[in-house]
Every structure is written in C-alpha cells, then in structure tokens.
Computed example of a mutant assay.
Amino acid sequence: MDGPAVPTSPQPAQGSGSQSAAWAELLRLPALFTVPGDVLAGSASASGRPGPRTLWAIGSSLCLYEAGMVLNDWADRAEDAAERPHRPLPSGRVRPAAALTAVCALTIAGLALAARSGRPALTVAVPLAATVWAYDLGLKRTPAGPAAMAAARALDLLLGAAATSGHVRSALPSAALLGTHTLALTAVSRHETQGGAPLTPLAALATTGVLTRLVSRGRTLAKGKLPGAKGQLISFRSGVLAALPAACAAAYAATAARPYLHATLNPSPPLTQRAVGGGIRATIPLQAALCARSGAPVSALITAALAPLAARFAKRVSVT
C-alpha cells in the first residue's frame, strides 16, 4: 500500500520544522487522494451501491495505506540518513519510536474498521495488512517487490468489493488491471535514485497503452423500443456510460504516458522520478475509469474529482 518512493520536489510546506508539518510529510498526506478510488472501483466492480460499509472500508484503506507510508520510512531510516537526510526520521523531526507506534496504531485501526465493514472485508484486510508489512520490511528490496506492491493495490480494490457486496469474484478483473498498473509503476520506481535502462519505463509506457484500451469501454443500456421521454432518458444514460470510461481512460493515458516516454528517451534520475510521480497521479483517473466501465458514473466522477485536489495539496507537501 505504500506508494513507490519518489523524491519529487514540490516546495516544502511552510513551517516544515514543526511537528505537524513533519508528520504531514511522513504521512505523505496528498497521496491519500489516490486511496478512496480503490474501494469505490471495487464496489462498482461488484455491482454494488456504495453504502455505510463502503465508507468503513475506505477508512480502513486509508489507515492501512498510511501505515505503509510510515513503515516505509521507518524501515529505510538508515538509508535515508545517507541519501535523503531531510526526511522526517533522519532529520530528527519525528522519533523512530513514535513512527513505529503510529504504524501499529494505524494497522490496528485499519483492521478494526474493516471488521466494522463485515467479515468478508476483514478477510481481505488481513492479507492486505500482511502484504503492506512484508513489502516494507523486506520484499521491496527483492525481485518480488513490484509484485507485492501490485498485490497490495489489488487487495485494496477487493476490499471495496467485499465490504459492499460480500464477494470479490466479479471484481477480480478490475483488481488485475489496477495491479498491472502498479506493477509497472513500482518497477520504474526502483531506478529513481540512480536512473537505469530505458526498457523499464518503455515497458510501463506499453502497459499504459494496453490498460487505456482495456478500460476505455463501458457498459451500455439497451434502448429497446421505449417511446418518448423514458426512451430518451435511457438513451442519454447509455451515451454517458459509454463516453465516461473513454474520457477517464484518456485522462489516465495523458497523465502517465508523457513522463514514461521522457524517462524512456533519457532514463536519468530526475526524469525517472517524474515518471514515477506521473504514474502515481495517473492512479486516480485509472480508478475513475474502472468505476465508469463497471457502470458507476457517480463513483467515477467522485473519484476523478480527487485528482485536482491531490495536485493542489501536492504543491505544499510531497506526495512521496
């Protein structure tokens, strides 16, 4: 659940020496806008309407995501002391013991909220939390790292399906698509510090193209032979449901493809970091496209609306 570490460089928040600013940086608060869409896409894929249990699941997802963010920095504090000494832990603005305490509290809260969503949601949340911890404490430094990150995102989507409808089978295709995006993004992020070969961002670019095509088609409603206003309303709804996935997919491609292309042409650390930042931001329109293709235009629009909010807050606090 922890986002790929990419030291993009928005301007530091004012008062960055304060405890609140340090925790905002450690928690990467703007990155939270990439989380609710997982659950909403899962709910939409399960053909369920979001309800109170869906909201509990979103709370669970947010807590587990933040647990992963803080645990990532706690596990990397020695490495960050050499490469990123300005980060909250190596700079001493947040104590390691306090960070680890926050990780445990967030994990417990996430599981408790999942339990509040029902037993099916808790059944998904437990392996999700285990994947978060396993990734941050070891798997991210192994070849299995990208797959573990992809599994975490996929499980987060399935959490929404389990909470809303009690089953996850119908949400598996959407989980696979979101996981594939995350796999490609995480593979690129492994080269952000020192740069790398162009094949990795090229593969991510190709993946973006394939995913764009797959998520650009949504459900349509049969018009039948209904006369008058009712037939026109169904026709209008059918047109919206058909057009919205393509619009969201186009936004996804526009956000991710260009920085991936730049990193392919010049896989330097700065351009690789921008590629990872673009991939993270592209998660939101991808989630919106997944909602739209499942026939949930309201969830798609709510998710899409998070993108400009994330961009606005990222100017003050780094998303990674």
Rank of each mutant, 00 (worst) to 15 (best):
I302T: 07
H262G: 00
Q273T: 15
T283A: 15
I280S: 07
Y260L: 13
R274D: 15
I302Q: 00
R274N: 14
A296L: 02
R281M: 11
N266G: 12
L261H: 07
A292L: 06
T264E: 00
A288S: 11
A289F: 04
P269H: 10
A289K: 05
A292H: 06
L301E: 03
T303E: 09
L286G: 02
C291L: 12
P270A: 07
L261T: 01
N266P: 00
A275P: 12
A288Y: 10
P285G: 14
S268I: 06
L286V: 06
P269M: 10
P267C: 13
A289E: 05
V298T: 15
Q273V: 14
T272D: 02
A275N: 13
A263K: 10
A282V: 01
I284E: 09
A296I: 04
R281N: 04
A300L: 11
R293D: 03
R274Q: 15
A256G: 01
G279L: 12
R274I: 02
P269F: 11
I280R: 09
Q287D: 13
Q273F: 00
P267W: 13
P297I: 11
A292C: 08
Y260K: 00
G295Y: 04
I280E: 09
G279V: 08
A257K: 09
A282N: 03
A275F: 12
L290I: 07
L265V: 07
